[in-house]
């Protein structure tokens, strides 16, 4: 029987910031403790095995009130790829108008995740 090990995480699922303990036996998770809601338990499992993040950044927009439009990944992406994705998105340019939810880049770096606008911008 392999040794049990406890890892500590702080849940980022909501502002409560539950302090999680994830116990594993070397291969599998045995228990996730310290959560207040199911999201916390899920986060603990994921953070222990395959940490993922949603990335929010901006892209350039032409013909709008501001020079940039906010965007995000349509789903979570592997944590290790966050910087790479932000860099890949940096040079994207779109033309106003843009609608909330519209994809400005599809399947970013082969993750299967799109980059979508998080607001409407009108043409001015």
């Amino acid at each position: 029987m392999s040794e049990h090990h406890v890892s500590h995480y702080l849940c980022i699922g909501c502002p409560l910031g539950c302090r999680l303990e994830v116990e594993d036996d070397g291969t599998d998770i045995v228990e996730v403790r310290g959560w207040d809601c199911k999201r916390g338990e899920r986060y603990g499992r994921e953070e222990h095995t395959d940490p993922r993040r949603v990335v929010a950044t901006t892209v350039k927009v032409r013909g709008a009130l501001w020079a940039r439009i906010p965007v995000k990944t349509s789903g979570s992406v592997p944590k290790a790829m966050v910087r790479e994705i932000a860099k890949a998105v940096r040079n994207v340019e779109v033309e106003a108008p843009v609608r909330l939810g519209a994809a400005v880049l599809t399947d970013v770096l082969g993750t299967g995740v799109d980059i979508v606008a998080t607001r409407d911008v009108e043409r001015v």
Binding site: A86, K87, R90, N91, V92, L105, V108
Partner: peptide, 8 residues
């Protein structure tokens, strides 16, 4: 100016 990113 912001740094140029990769060509997407």
């Amino acid at each position: 100016e912001r740094e140029e990113g990769d060509d997407a």
